[in-house]
């Protein structure tokens, strides 16, 4: 599973990465997580409010730290 977290580097983006890593570990799912901080690349996903989450090339979330339930839903 390839996961990208889009964000210009604020605290919310960092906690989003940490949350996803934690959830994946708890479920024993192997993920490849990357932080995208480049503005042009963030914009190329059509996301305006960060943090945004992209899974396998598809935007699944934008604007705010996702809840644990939401993350668990992605990790299937």
């Amino acid at each position: 599973m390839q996961i990208k977290v889009l964000g210009t580097g604020c605290a919310n983006c960092r906690s989003t990465v940490a949350l996803i890593e934690e959830a994946a570990q708890a479920k024993g799912i192997a993920i490849e997580i990357a932080k995208v901080e480049d503005l042009k690349e963030i914009m190329s996903y059509g996301v305006m409010s960060t943090p945004g989450v992209v899974i396998n090339g598809k935007v699944v979330h934008a604007g705010g730290i996702p809840t644990r339930d939401l993350i668990d839903g992605w990790l299937k």
Binding site: G7, G9, L39, M43, G46, M48, S49, T50, G63
Partner: peptide
Amino acid sequence: TPFCSCSAVPLFIGFLS
């Protein structure tokens, strides 16, 4: 509209685009 200060720039570009 909800957004945190670090979203200001993506929002700015998103609006213009």
